[in-house]
Amino acid sequence: MSQTEHSEYYVPAQSPWPILGAFAFFLIAVGSGTLVAQIGKTGEAGWGQWVLIVGIVAILAMLVGWFRDQIIESRTGLHSHQLGVSYRQGMSWFIFSEVMFFAAFFGALFYARLISVPWLGGASNNEMTNLVLWPDFQAMWPLTTTPDGTTTQAMGPMGLPLINTIILVISSVTIHFAHVGLEHNKRKQLANMLLLTIVLGCIFLFLQVEEYIHAYRDLGLKLDSGVYGNTFFLLTGFHGMHVTLGTLFLIVMWLRVLKGHFTPDNHFAFQAASWYWHFVDVVWLCLFVFVYVL
């Protein structure tokens, strides 16, 4: 690996983008923090929302500027093979960190299902917990009646979730064929398969919104419907955010493909987008099994 590559590593000169990014994170954190607190206190969004919006605009500007520089450098041949390896390893570790983020919420799901709900129902040596706190509470999963009596209905795996699973699995295949097209320099296959993946991603998101509407309107399944609703919406919600991000990522890749970017041996950004897409797909499969089916 590094032992064989002796060419000079590209160390970029000074750049204004990172500090802009840090400032954008600052605005987003301050904006979100005050927005959430203001809504929690008064029920109305105050000045926090404007700080948040400015922060989001700043971070988009940062991304555009930073990646523009990056693309120019890559296309002028400043990037060595070794730098490409750095990027690929960096992206892999980033995806690993995302896996661990989801692991926290899956952990909460498993804890609720296997420990806290059964214990509240008196399992193991917790009979007194049940008798003293909520003697009428029956442990069950999905938790459709919480200890304090909030009721809801469960979201079954059939219908929209199953359709969404199929869509996402197909999209993982199409992005793979797009990649194959890129590697064999079949630009048309690349562009079409990529576009198809984007369309599938958008359909997934649309159906996900439909499913949320169905949950809220028909099932009474809400974010605050006890720990079943909590884990359901946080897991599927964060997944949906990642699909949104992945779709945007793919759209940028598609526009770059149309502009003639990427060659069979220089296409890190495309590869990263493809990895990211496979990652959201795998997360969905885990979600489908543990949130919907089991």
Partner: peptide, 20 residues
């Protein structure tokens, strides 16, 4: 979300657990 959005990850009344 527990503090501001009504979830009960760490609240036994909703099936969660502060020990979690």
């Amino acid at each position: 979300t527990d503090k501001y959005f009504g979830t009960s990850f760490f609240d036994a009344a909703g099936g969660g657990d502060p020990v979690m």
